[in-house]
Deep mutational scan, measured.
Amino acid sequence: MSGNGNAAATAEENSPKMRVIRVGTRKSQLARIQTDSVVATLKASYPGLQFEIIAMSTTGDKILDTALSKIGEKSLFTKELEHALEKNEVDLVVHSLKDLPTVLPPGFTIGAICKRENPHDAVVFHPKFVGKTLETLPEKSVVGTSSLRRAAQLQRKFPHLEFRSIRGNLNTRLRKLDEQQEFSAIILATAGLQRMGWHNRVGQILHPEECMYAVGQGALGVEVRAKDQDILDLVGVLHDPETLLRCIAERAFLRHLEGGCSVPVAVHTAMKDGQLYLTGGVWSLDGSDSIQETMQATIHVPAQHEDGPEDDPQLVGITARNIPRGPQLAAQNLGISLANLLLSKGAKNILDVARQLNDAH
């Protein structure tokens, strides 16, 4: 009898209710805020589980004197976190989706994509230029951005401005803007500013005609071990179906173009009346040469937790077992079709030249 009692006690200790789920994140304040929001949602869904947040620095956090596009290494903000995932030191990792490459290392998958916040870019102005827009900034004003995508589009749109690289986390960039006289304004992701509670610093939100956004911008991705079915089931509740389908289309477009950090590629997606609209573009580094096109596809946005595919093969690095396969494939095909259209119009040449120029500098 006593033996059975011990077995029952052991089973209770090993039951999922007692389990601590370890969540990996970057150390920056924004990353911690984003991770806290994901953990809060998981806690609400699984009140019996405990969650421990483990923060670590990544290569991208450490190399702050070089433009991201020049470092010449993929997975700048993800490699150390993936290493911890691989060694079973954490069970899942919360990322900004735009930091996750469209091809993940073997053994990993994006197990959830959370509801997207505003994906557009924002302009934050130096205190002396508050009330201005990019259009009304004085001639030769210097605007800071760490992104080739932003610089290429904005140089084309605002030729009277000069664009220079600015690195560091959000706090560091804002301090550089406010305390030094080098920059009249800087460009940042609206979602990051909003998550930090800095709505009052948003001086201008850039519309798609001015600057399309990065693939996955404004959404959070939760990376897990691809074979860890328990954790895949656990994080599945975080999937937002519309965000998922938009981001599958965007990531398929980028992957098929073979774009990345070192080339200016941008997108804009919208879901309306059962249609998914995808606009994508590529630019030369100075913005003088560009190709942009829009395509659409009829896609039914499923309700969360309709029964999805059981075999769960990944699409552009994403596993969404609780979302039907048909809409996911339709979104992926839309991204591939748009990429093929741009490639047929000469996108590869623009991107190759951009890559060579970026590598040469």
Rank of each mutant, 00 (worst) to 15 (best):
V20I: 10
I21R: 06
K27Y: 08
S28T: 13
L30T: 01
L30R: 01
R32I: 14
I33F: 06
Q34P: 01
Q34E: 01
T35S: 09
A40K: 13
T41I: 12
L42D: 01
S45Q: 14
Y46L: 08
P47K: 15
P47S: 11
L49A: 14
Q50H: 12
Q50S: 01
Q50F: 08
E52S: 11
E52Q: 01
I54V: 10
A55E: 15
M56T: 12
S57E: 06
D61N: 01
D65Y: 10
T66G: 12
T66E: 14
S69C: 13
S69Q: 12
K70E: 09
K70M: 14
I71A: 01
E73T: 14
E73I: 07
E73R: 11
K74R: 05
K74F: 08
F77T: 01
T78P: 01
K79E: 12
E80V: 07
E80G: 08
E80Y: 01
E82S: 10
E82A: 12
H83R: 13
L85N: 01
L85Y: 01
E86T: 10
K87T: 12
K87S: 13
N88M: 13
E89C: 08
D91R: 04
L92P: 01
L92Y: 01
L97I: 08
L100S: 06
P101A: 12
P101C: 01
P101Y: 01
L104C: 09
L104T: 06
P105F: 14
P106N: 13
G107H: 08
F108P: 14
F108C: 10
T109V: 15
T109W: 06
T109Y: 04
G111A: 05
I113D: 04
C114Q: 12
K115E: 10
R116G: 06
E117T: 06
E117P: 01
N118K: 08
N118Q: 09
P119A: 12
H120L: 13
V123G: 07
V124F: 06
V124K: 05
F125T: 04
K128F: 07
L134A: 08
T136I: 14
L137W: 01
P138T: 10
K140S: 13
S141Y: 08
V143C: 14
S146R: 10
S147C: 05
L148F: 14
L148S: 06
R149Q: 03
R150T: 01
A152T: 13
A152M: 10
A152G: 09
L154Y: 06
L154I: 05
R156V: 12
F158Y: 14
P159Q: 10
P159T: 09
H160N: 12
E162F: 14
F163R: 09
I166E: 01
N169S: 12
L170V: 11
N171P: 07
N171M: 11
T172Y: 09
R173Q: 01
L174F: 14
R175A: 11
R175W: 11
K176L: 12
Q181S: 10
T190Y: 07
G192S: 12
G197E: 05
W198R: 08
H199Q: 06
V202H: 01
P208S: 10
E209P: 15
C211P: 01
M212V: 04
M212C: 01
A214D: 06
Q217V: 01
L220G: 03
G221L: 05
V224M: 15
R225N: 04
A226G: 11
A226V: 12
K227P: 01
Q229D: 13
I231S: 10
V235A: 03
D240A: 08
P241M: 15
E242A: 14
T243K: 06
R246D: 01
C247G: 06
I248K: 01
I248A: 03
A249F: 01
R251H: 01
R251G: 01
F253M: 14
L254M: 09
R255W: 12
R255L: 01
H256F: 15
C261W: 08
C261Q: 03
V263W: 01
H268P: 04
M271L: 12
M271V: 10
M271T: 06
K272L: 08
Q275T: 01
Y277H: 15
T279F: 09
G281D: 01
L285Y: 15
D286V: 11
D286C: 07
D286E: 13
G287A: 05
S288M: 15
S288A: 13
I291H: 10
Q292C: 12
E293D: 14
T294Y: 01
T294N: 14
Q296M: 01
T298Q: 08
E306F: 15
G308C: 10
E310P: 03
D312W: 05
P313Q: 04
L315T: 03
V316E: 05
G317W: 12
G317T: 07
R321V: 03
N322L: 06
I323D: 07
I323S: 10
P324Y: 07
R325M: 01
R325K: 08
R325H: 13
L329D: 09
Q332K: 15
S337N: 15
S337F: 01
A339R: 04
N340H: 01
N340K: 12
L341G: 08
L343V: 15
K345I: 13
A347F: 03
K348W: 13
K348V: 01
K348Y: 01
I350F: 14
I350L: 04
I350Y: 15
L351N: 01
V353G: 07
A354I: 01
R355S: 15
L357V: 10
N358T: 15
D359Y: 13
D359F: 07
D359G: 13
A360K: 01
